[in-house]
Structures are given as C-alpha cells and as structure tokens.
Design a protein around this nucleic acid. Structure first.
Length: 916
RNA sequence: GGGCGAAUAGCUCAGUUGGACAGAGCGCUCGCCUCACACGCGAGAGGUCACAGGUUCGACCCCUGUUUCGCCCACCA
C-alpha cells in the first residue's frame, strides 16, 4: 500500500490538530452502551472558571481524568466525561468591571441589566477560548452534554434546591456578622477567607470610669473599632470581676457610657484580661453582644470607610482612621503602650483585601443536617479518597461545619429566588415572581437583590447537568458518577458540598472515588498565577512541543496528591519520548513495507477478518487481539531468544500498567510504558533484531517483523490514553489495524507470553554486553572497531553460549567473533559475568599488571561480601526467623559468591603465571 | 494552639507489604553524526537515604524524639 514517507523527526504541529476534528466527527467521545457488562464510567469535569485561560493546574488535573476516561473507554465501558464551565461570580464580575473601567465606563452607572449583558459577552468570548484549549489538549469530553453553571437547566435546579432547603428550614436569612470584602463590596463565605500571619501591633488603651475614679486597660489590634464599642468584658472568675462588672466606663473619643460586663469568652491570661466589645465588627464580640443584649452600632460602611457614627473620623478609610484614632488617644493620654504582635489577618482569596467582619443581612444554609450524612459516607467508604489522608481533612471539616453564607452582593450570578411583599414584608421562595403576595394580596413584590455564591450552583454539578429535578435517562444511567479528580484546595468549597447535595437530593453519593492532585507550582515553589507571570499558557507549550508531550510529561511527573514543581523544561521528557516512538515506528514500518512483510504477514486490507480465535496462545493470541486476524503459520516456531524475552517483558508491562491505572497511579503507568518502550523495546529488542530485519533468511526476518509489528501496535494501544494524538496517528499508519485506536480495546495480559527462562538468559546477555562495553569504553577501544572475544564454558553448569546468544553478544558488544575456549589466553582482559568467563584479547591494550590489580580489587570486594554474608548466615536468629525463601536466596547467593571468588583467584594465578 | 505533608545524587523527584548491591529524568564528564531517532547511542562520576535513639535476625521503609521547610484548620482581643 502506498503511504506517505515518514518524516525523520516527529512533528506534532502537523499531526495533532487534524485528529481533534476527526474524533469529533466520529463522535468518539459519546458514551456507547457496553456489551461486556461493565458499569458505566462517568467523570465530571471540574468546570473551569469562565474568567480566563486554562493554566497548568487544569492541564494536570484534566489530563489525569482524560487518561482514566480513555482507559475506561478502551475497556469497553460506557464512558462519559462531562464538560462544563463555571460562571465564577466574583471573579468574572471583577474582570468585567475592570474591562469597563478601561473603556472609561463606570460599572455601577451602567446598571444591573446592561452589566450582566456585558458579562455574557465576556463569557462567550472566554468560553470559546477555553473550549479550544481543552480540545487542543485532546481531552475526550462529550461536548454534546456541555453545560454552563448559569444556564437555564442549571438555574432550574438551583432554584429548586433553594426552595426545598428553604421549605425545610435549612436556608435562613438574618443579620449576622459575615466576612465582608470592602473592595468587592460583598459578603463572602468563611472558606473564601485566607488567613495570613503577619507582624502587626497591639495597643493597650485606657478606658476611664464614667465617675472619673480611674480607668481600666484593654488591649486591641484594631483601635478604629473603638468607635463601635458597646462594652468592656472581663472573665467572670477574674478576681477583679466582682468589683468591676456593672460599673460604667466612658468610651474614649466619643464619650458614650458603656458598661463592664462578664463573659467567659475573655481569656484572663491574655493582654490585660479585658476586652473591648464591638459587636458589629468582630465575630466574637458579635456573639458576646447577643448574649448580653447589647446594641451593634455599625461604624464602617461597605466600602471600608468610617461612617457617620464614627464621629470625627467619618469619611476616613478604616486604616487611615486607625492611625488617627491612635494619635487622638495618645493626645488624650489614653494610649498606654504599643507592642509588636503577630496576628493572622483574614484576606479575601480573590483580591487579597483585608476582610472586614461586618454585620449585614445575609442568607445562610444550615449545614449540620446536610453534613452528617456526608460524614457517614466517607466513614463507611461509600466515598474513598486518594491519597487516603485527604479523608481526614474532609472529615475534620464536615464534622466541625459552620453555616454557609450563600448570598453575594453582586450582579453576576443566580439571583436569590425570594420575593418580598413591599406592603407586608412577607417573603416567598419561588421559581418565578408570584402575581401577588399570598398573605396580603399586594401585587408589589420585589426580588431579593443579592445573588447566590457560585458554589451554590456548582455543588449540584453531579446531577443538575443531567436534568435534575426531572428524572432523565442520563440521571438514571450516570448518577452516581465514578471518579472525581480535582485539586485538594477545593475539598471544602466543592467536593464536600457535592457529597452533601447528592446525598440530600439524590439519596446517593455523587461519586465513589475522589483523586486529589497537588498544586502545580513553578520551579521556585510558588503557586502559578497570572499576576506573578509564572504561569505558562498551555497553548504556547503545545505550540512548541505538542499536546501529547505536555500531557505525558505532566502526568508522568506528578505523583498523586503531591504538589508538582513545573518547569517548561520538563515537557522535553514527553517530547523526546514522542520522537523516540515515532522513530521506532518508522524503523518497523519502513522495514516491513520495504521487505514485503506487510503482505506476507497478512496485514493488507483494512478490514479485520474475525474476532480473535479462541484458545490461541502466546503470540497468536496477541496477534489476534491486535489485528483481528490469524497469525500466519510457522512464526511461533521461529521465535528467538530476544522475541521470547520482549514478549515476556511486554505482558509484564501490560500487567503493571493496568494495575497502576486501576489504582489511579497514572504517573507510574506512564513510567511503566516509558521504560518498556524505550529501554526494552527500542534499546534492546529493536537493536537485537536489526540484522534479522534485513536478513536473507525469510523465516527469521518474518518472525522478527511479526513480533516488532505486533508489539508496535500493542504499544500504540498502551500509549493511547497518555498520548492520544501520536497513538492515533501511528494506528492509522500501522497496516492491519482498523478503526480508531481510542475506541479499540486496551491490551490485556497474556499469560502464555511469559517465559522466565528466556528472560533470565537475555538478562545475562545484557549484563555481559554491558560489561564488555564498559571495558571497551575504559580502554578507549574505538566504537567502530570489532574485537574478538573468547568465552569459557561455565564450569558449574557446563553450559556454553547458544548460537542465538553468541549472535546477540556479538551484536551488542560489537564483537568480531565469540569463540569458546578452555584456557585463559595471553593478553586478555577477563570479565566474570555471573557464570560466564569472558576473555577479551585486546592485545597491546592489555596491561597485565593493571589487569591483575583490577581483578584483585574485584576479589577483595567479593571476599568482603562473602564474609558479610557468612556472618549473616551464621547468626542463629537469621536462619531461624527469616522466611525460608529469604534464607534460601541468601544461601544461593553464597554459593555464587564463593564460586566467583574461586574464579577470580584462579584468574589472578593465571596472570601471575603468564605475567612479565 | 491543633493537624497534615515533605526532608533520598548538583536539581526535580520515585522507592506500593521491612529482606543483598540505593533508582529515574534533567544536569555534569568522556567517547560517538553506528544505515529509526543527536529530541539520539555507549560509558562514567555523583548519595552517612535530615539528625538522635529504639524495635527487629535484618530498617531508606516501622516506633519515639529532635531539627528544617511547606500546607491546612482554629474566635485569643
């Protein structure tokens, strides 16, 4: 058959892009009901934020998913990998605001409707880019099922969930202290606050008694909140308490009178043992204030600016106000001291603005009742975590869960589906605005202005895209899903909440396995971020090295659950590997077609004949598995040592690769393939058969081509989950294959290919050839020069080298000839490789004195080892207590070692006899 | 203040159940454009497995403690 000549260097830029379209056209990523009884394999893509481009963290997590998904698909399971994108409330809103300001437009002046319109425009643009990236990376997502967390379908589910939880009393509204971001001007949840330790100050202040009889001392890290103080608290068991509690103080600056109260919240040992209470601006003080029925004056406005209640400081930014308050206190003689103090400042994780604890009306979800079933699901193993330690992190959080603040003062998001009557304030949660108030009949109803936390839509992802609350076919078939792969940083935000939501609304867990991958950091260990400029655009990397290289490298270099240090240089690993595979294929394919073996092996014609013949063993079974046609007769009897060896190594590689993929260790699976293909198939096998490929002996050439060919095809299938583009390209070029490799069957272990004896003999050839190469290199024998070698029959077993072995040794060690010998020749270097005594008569290159010294050093070492081993074997504890297999192994080793010593001694004696 | 993780070659990391000699990639040194591949081939140097104890016939691996780094959680003003 005519095929385009194969380029010498693999060029992913040429090869990869067309496959994206071809896979789409053939609908290769759509689920196909399985015929083998295996359950569906469903993975939910963690929907990337629609705010920007994908970064290396996505590349890692999502490529891992793609590997498992493709592996499942290749096992004939009905497989769906469900794509979607997230509207990312705050993040998107901020980007759009920024863009508007750059255009000179004030977002606030634009108005809600127009602003949201701009968000949708941005979303459309960004979404297109992200989808392009995902497709370019070869991710096998089922695009027909794509959703967006703000689309109609999701919205129905969100509102339904809100209504149901509200009806159950699990959603409530109230005036509480929340984490407020003055820059974003919205409440956020506890999880969105990052605590960063930093050096600050602590001020000790004097609060005079109202009657002028002295003062008490309080310590604070936030002097500006003094303006909102309503009391000073002391621990009830503090000795000073009986005297102080109930007395009135005069609040500095403002002059209001405030009481001293007793509360166990105060730690008598810290600071002055007395705490100023500012209920509206401190979460603890808020609770103290509630307990004591105190007022909660708000003195800071939503933008972080002091308001009218702050008296002389009104209009000042909170930090400026702090400095001015301190100045004023000092002037009034009320500042006792200032000390350095380390404190954990809460910052908004999106913008790093210091969080202001702030009293406002917000909506909350009561989490305890939802969390309890979620705790049990992890405890009893219905959900398992990999690596396991993340289970503890999950459990700790779910067991100590706090209510979830779900309302956000933003425009971009799901509007809270609550309608309040303007006349009587009666509020209802509903899918749409009711025509009139159900209580007073007034027609003026107003929808709550806030939107819901983005996670309030994404926690439904395991079922809302499937059509819930309707009972759709997808929902029945694909929920619960199989595996979730995501970063450990969103265990609380997302993983835990999905488990809660699925248990509450579906009555089942959302997935049974959670694989947590680490964070991708740069070479210096910093998180990748746009602001640091250390986040390479995956598309740039792909342009340079190819998507497969990026995929393979990130997977191979990322152990599960551990952070990865990413360096663009790492991508070379995959790039070089791809090139290696390409060239190995070039060798095999070119040779086969040049020498006419494509036809001779029955690989012409595109249609495979039949399913593999039942009962076929070894190579025949492998052949049938790959090509769906019978192995030509006679080949199996023509197999040589290297064939039997590589077939054994191959089936071992399949076994370990499958085991690693089954246990979600994609990095190890990638490594397995890398080493099998590079170090064994290329370095030893292909090198071994090169003479046979062009041999005039048709039979030996045919068997070499057959084995090289079938392993190339099988390795291509092993490669398919990791490097789908290259695999597909090769598959299309390998005669005898049919269809797409990505929908072919992943190879299975073939026990009949195991051949321990051949493995042992071939390993000996590797050792011998390596030893000879080392000597050649040490003695500077020119690489091209062929030298003779003499091999003494093994004195113990009496075995010499077979013809096959002799050929292999000649080839790999660049030997002119390998002849048996009984005696030590003159001027030869001797090598003792296991039982083989090899002499290299290198003539003038041999310095007998040096040779004797070298052998003596080897002997010394062998004797040392022997003595150590004897010591070990002589210990009664070892022989008695160690497993028999270990003891036997050590005894066998002792025999070998003793034999080696004998041989070395006799070599040294020989040289001494012949020496100068 | 609690919890978790890491510490192995110059760098980044493997080492799954304790069983001889400690593994990879990159980097480095030497030699090679050998007719698949210089994105390559062959060879080599390089490690007190953080430290100190312990358990064991035997420890990179298990236990205890210490040190250093990182992360998470937590209402000490």
């Amino acid at each position: 058959m005519d095929r385009a000549p194969i380029d010498k260097a693999y060029d992913p830029a040429q090869v990869e892009p067309p496959w994206v379209a071809r896979w789409q056209e053939s609908r290769a990523f759509a689920p196909v009901p399985s015929t083998n009884g295996l359950p569906p394999y469903v993975v939910l893509l963690p929907p990337p934020n629609v705010t920007g481009v994908l970064h290396m963290g996505h590349v890692l997590a999502n490529t891992l998913q793609d590997v498992f998904v493709r592996y499942a698909r290749m096992q004939g399971r009905e497989t769906v990998w469900w794509p979607g994108t997230d509207h990312a409330g705050i993040a998107t809103q901020k980007v759009v605001e920024k863009n508007l300001r750059q255009e000179g437009i004030d977002p606030a002046a634009l108005g809600r409707e127009a602003f949201v319109e701009r968000c949708w425009e941005w979303k459309a643009k960004s979404h297109a880019h992200i989808v392009q990236q995902m497709q370019r990376l070869g991710w096998s997502l089922d695009w027909d099922r794509e959703y967006f967390t703000l689309d109609e379908r999701m919205s129905r589910a969100v509102v339904e969930v809100f209504i149901r939880l509200h009806a159950k009393g699990l959603i409530y509204k109230g005036a509480y202290i929340t984490n407020w971001c003055p820059a974003c001007r919205t409440a956020i949840s506890d999880e969105e606050v990052e605590h960063v330790e930093q050096q600050g100050k602590i001020w000790t202040l004097r609060y005079p008694f109202a009657d002028g009889s002295g003062f008490v001392r309080v310590a604070t890290t936030r002097p500006e909140t003094i303006l909102g103080d309503v009391a000073v608290a002391i621990h009830p068991e503090d000795p000073r308490a009986s005297e102080l509690v109930g007395r009135m103080l005069r609040l500095p600056i403002l002059g209001r009178e405030i009481p001293v109260i007793a509360d166990t919240y105060v730690d008598p040992a810290f600071g002055t043992g007395m705490v100023k209470i500012t209920p509206a601006h401190d979460p603890n003080d808020f609770h103290v204030g509630k307990r004591h029925g105190l007022e909660s004056p708000v003195v800071i406005d939503p933008a972080g600016v002091m308001n009218a209640l702050a008296g002389p400081f009104a209009g000042l930014d909170r930090f400026k106000a702090r400095a001015r308050v301190v100045e004023r206190l000092e002037a009034d003689g009320l500042l006792e001291k200032v000390e350095a103090h380390t404190l954990a400042i809460g910052r908004h994780d999106r913008c790093e603005t210091v969080i202001e604890p702030y009293l406002s009306q917000q909506w909350f979800v009561r989490m305890k009742p939802l969390a309890e079933p979620a705790v049990r699901a992890a405890e009893d193993g219905r959900v398992t975590f990999y690596p396991e330690r993340w289970r503890n992190v999950y459990l700790h959080w779910t067991r100590n869960i706090q209510d979830w603040c779900i309302s956000r003062q933003l425009w971009w998001g799901h509007r809270i589906p609550v309608y309040e009557c303007v006349a009587c304030q009666h509020a209802v949660a509903a899918h749409a605005a009711p025509p009139q108030c159900e209580k007073c009949g007034d027609a003026r109803l107003q929808q709550d202005e806030s939107v819901l936390d983005t996670w309030f839509s994404s926690w439904l992802c395991p079922f809302s895209p499937m059509g819930w609350p309707e009972e759709t076919a997808d929902l029945n078939r694909f929920h619960p899903t199989t595996l979730l792969v995501t970063g450990y940083e969103i265990i609380f935000f997302w993983v835990a909440r999905m488990i809660m939501a699925s248990l509450e609304f579906m009555g089942d867990v959302p997935f049974s396995q959670v694989l947590l991958n680490g964070i991708v950091r740069d070479a210096k260990g910093r998180k990748l971020s746009k602001s640091l400029g250390n986040s390479p655009d995956p598309l740039d990397l792909i342009a340079n090295c190819g998507a497969d290289a990026v995929r393979f490298s990130t997977v191979m270099l990322s152990p599960p659950g551990q952070d990865t240090y990413f360096d663009a240089k790492n991508v070379e690993t995959g790039q070089h590997f791809a090139n290696k595979i390409w060239n190995a294929a070039r060798l095999v394919l070119t040779s086969a077609s040049t020498h006419g073996f494509v036809a001779e092996l029955g690989l012409e014609g595109d249609a495979p004949v039949t399913p593999p013949a039942a009962g076929a063993e070894g190579l025949a079974a492998l052949w049938a598995e790959s090509f769906g046609r019978p192995l030509p007769a006679g080949i199996e009897t023509d197999l040589r040592l290297e064939d039997r060896w590589i077939l054994h190594r191959y089936t071992e590689a399949v076994t370990t690769m499958r085991r690693n993929l089954d246990s979600l260790r994609a990095n190890d699976a990638a490594s397995d393939l890398y080493h099998f293909f590079w170090d064994e198939y290329c370095a030893w096998y292909l090198e071994s058969i090169k003479p046979r490929l062009q041999s005039a002996d048709r039979a030996t050439a045919r068997s070499a081509h057959a084995v090289a060919f079938v392993l190339l095809s099988s390795a291509t299938k092993l490669l398919a989950p990791l490097m789908p583009f290259l695999a597909e390209e090769l598959w299309s070029r390998i005669p005898g294959t049919a269809g797409l490799v990505i929908t072919s069957r992943f190879p299975r272990e073939i026990a009949a290919l195991r051949d321990a004896a051949s493995v042992d003999r071939f390993a000996l050839m590797i050792e011998a050839a390596s030893a000879i190469r080392t000597v050649r290199s040490e003695r500077n024998v020119p690489p091209g020069k062929k030298a003779p070698a003499l091999v003494q029959k093994d004195t113990r077993s009496g075995a010499g080298l077979s013809v096959e072995e002799t050929e292999l040794l000649k080839l790999h060690a660049k030997l002119e000839s390998v002849e048996p010998t009984a005696v030590r020749p003159d001027n030869a270097i001797s090598l003792l490789v296991r039982d083989l005594q090899i002499y290299l008569p290198l003539g003038g290159l041999v310095d007998l004195g040096a040779e004797r010294d070298r052998l003596q050093r080897e002997l010394d070492k062998a004797e040392r080892d022997l003595a150590a081993l004897d010591g070990k074997l002589a210990k009664p504890g070892f022989v008695d207590k160690a497993p028999a297999a270990v003891v036997d192994g050590e005894r066998a080793r002792r025999v070998d070692l003793a034999d080696r010593c004998d041989r070395l001694r006799s070599e040294i004696a020989d040289i001494a006899g012949k020496g100068p």
